[in-house]
Design a protein around this nucleic acid. Sequence first.
RNA 1: GGCCCUAUGGUCAAGUGGUUAAGACACCGCCCUUUCACGGCGGUAACCCGGGUUCGAGUCCCGGUAGGGUCACCA
Length: 554
Amino acid sequence: MDYEKLAELLFPETDKLPSHYETMYPERNLPEGAMVTRLGPSPTGFIHLGNLYGAFIDERMAVLSKGIVYLRIEDTDDKRYVKGAEKMLLDSLSYFDIKFDEGITSEGEEGAYGPYHQSRRKEIYSCYVKELVKKGFAYPCFLTEEEISIIREEQTRLKLVTGIYGEFAKSEKLTFKEVEERIALNLPYVVRLKAQGSPFSPEILRVKDGIRGELAMPENFLHIVLLKQNGMPTYHLAHVVDDHLMRTTHVVRGAEWLSSLPVHLELFSKFGFEPPQYCHTPQLMKLSDNNTKRKLSKRLDPELSLLYYRQEGFHKDCVREYLMTLLNSDYEQWRKENPNKPLSDFPFSIEKMKSADALIDLNKLCDISKDVLLGKDVNEIYEFFKDWAFEFNRDIKGWFKDESFMKAILNIGREGEKPRKDLIYAKQIADHISYFFEDGLREQEDVPENIKDDDILVLLSEYLKTYDHSDDRSEWFNKIREISEKNGYAGKPKDFKNEPEKYKGHVGDVSTLIRLSLTGRRESPDLWEIQQILGEEKTKGRIRNYMTGREQNA
RNA sequence: GGCCCUAUGGUCAAGUGGUUAAGACACCGCCCUUUCACGGCGGUAACCCGGGUUCGAGUCCCGGUAGGGUCACCA
């Protein structure tokens, strides 16, 4: 077989040589130790936590080593292409504050190593595959889908590894003339790698993974597809060519790629390229119903989608903070010691990553979120909450008419020695503060058990009568004490606890009744503060309304 | 099924041959407290199993087991 002639037959249009691209995309001029990383999502319309997790590693590695992190769109599968997916991808990444030095941005392409859409790199892939054909490392394969499935069935029956290799690689044996005839007939074909490994006694490859350490895997023997019928590259080819040409030094990807590592290593070696340092990250899992770990699935698990976190309104810093605790386990300790330092000061390193799969824990995310939000200025929280509402909860747009009112609400109890940590994520915040707005009042909760039905109106009307909006916190509370004691409720909860038979209840029960009339709930932050924010008129109005409601019920 | 990866409390996890096996979240109890939240104190709870190596094994080796991944003209 004359491989040169075969290459010309298959790629008559391709006149450039690899050396052309090698000079076009030279080695990057970066300081010693600088890492070049990349994120290569597919525009399928679904971005998940794993993407962000990986993006974060890429970004940290590049930034800390003074290298480059770029974004490349891996759109080689037209069947899965979703319109608008790319914009969504960019939005999500920028929402979570991942910044790229190079590649695709919302303004277009940036950088000297493009194009950064794989779909626009067909010529480059053809050139490199042509080179492989010339060297006898790749060949056209005319096997149809039906033929391949027959082969697979036979292999399954014989308990052999499925795939195209060895004697099953029928097209490999075609003579030049036979290939020529088929091409003349316009028969569709793919280009396959002529793998060198043996299926029976493969050599063992030893690779060092940046996260997992030494890995031992058998060499590849599968004749995998390099170019599809439509001339588009498969992931394998595109990955090797692009990461070489874009001078990527570290490939961070999920562990699901581990098993195709031998293929990639073989390609790097066939091309004569230096392979990058691979870093296979653990997978994100969740606990399934029968208490076993399982991979997150996009159909079953809404929390896998990045959109979920935006819809729920988790602040970007909370998600990043949480992800950090999964990435480097000494992060929480560091954060404790450096509560105010920016995350970028943390000495992140891939060596500190664990290789076992991680279960995502929303509980923990919430806990972290409380602290992160507490550390934020009320103005920032206001903006964050407003942005969320305008994008994901239009119903409450009206809540933002009075900015200082909203800010006062969001700032309740956040100052002082023991600040409250009520705010977790936007959706939760909306519910948490809803009682401040007439359209957000929920159904009334039950009156405390210790409050006698006959006392309700008595207690409230006395409260109204003595209410003075200018009272300070202690004056205000003393009045409640007096009302309680006057009506048979202990002024101090301790008294009631010690001698329950002497009282109907205690001041806490009375306070809860007032809280109920004001907010509809039995739990809330400090009532005095709520009243100050609500204003005198609304405060009194709500109590009167509540009383009228009780009267009508009675 | 073949190949590969992984294995410490419910979860995230320290730990690299000698520890009373850290810490965080969750949970429970107590304290503080007008409710809640916050905070403080305390508690329940773990080295998958079996063989080696060793004076000594969560830690090293081998074998199981379990979970996961992958075996596409998807990435």
